[in-house]
Amino acid sequence: TTLTVNTQTYTFTSEEEAREFARRYGAKTIRKTNGTWEVHG
């Protein structure tokens, strides 16, 4: 199964959650914005 996250942004309140998600789905960018963490595919 392949998950494609081209134009979607996922927002997390903790860096740990964001990094775990990025690691699991191979997202390329993690960015902190206004106190939340954004993961970009």
Rank of each mutant, 00 (worst) to 15 (best):
T1H: 12
T1K: 08
T1L: 12
T2C: 15
T2F: 06
L3I: 13
L3W: 04
L3A: 13
L3C: 15
L3E: 13
T4K: 10
T4W: 06
T4E: 12
T4I: 13
T4G: 13
V5S: 13
V5R: 05
N6R: 03
N6L: 14
T7K: 07
T7F: 13
T7S: 10
Q8Y: 13
Q8E: 09
T9P: 08
T9G: 06
T9S: 08
Y10L: 05
Y10A: 04
Y10M: 07
T11H: 07
T11E: 05
T11P: 02
T11W: 09
T11M: 07
F12G: 00
F12V: 00
S14V: 04
S14M: 03
S14C: 08
S14I: 04
S14R: 04
E15Q: 04
E15A: 05
E15N: 01
E15C: 07
E15K: 03
E15R: 04
E16F: 08
E16K: 11
E17Q: 07
E17S: 05
E17N: 03
E17D: 08
A18Q: 00
A18V: 00
A18I: 00
A18C: 02
R19W: 10
R19K: 10
R19P: 00
R19Y: 10
E20W: 06
E20Q: 07
E20S: 06
F21C: 12
F21Y: 06
A22T: 01
A22Y: 03
A22P: 00
R24T: 06
R24M: 10
Y25N: 08
Y25F: 11
G26T: 02
G26Y: 03
G26W: 03
G26N: 07
G26L: 04
G26I: 02
A27K: 05
A27I: 13
A27P: 02
K28D: 09
K28Y: 10
K28W: 07
T29P: 09
T29H: 10
T29Y: 14
T29M: 15
T29D: 08
T29V: 15
I30P: 02
I30L: 05
R31G: 03
R31V: 11
R31F: 10
K32A: 09
K32P: 03
T33H: 10
T33P: 11
N34C: 14
N34P: 02
N34R: 03
N34L: 04
G35R: 01
G35I: 01
G35S: 04
T36A: 09
T36F: 12
T36V: 14
W37I: 01
W37D: 00
E38N: 02
E38C: 10
E38P: 01
V39E: 01
V39H: 01
V39M: 01
H40Q: 14
H40Y: 14
G41S: 13
G41T: 15
G41V: 15
G41R: 08
G41L: 15
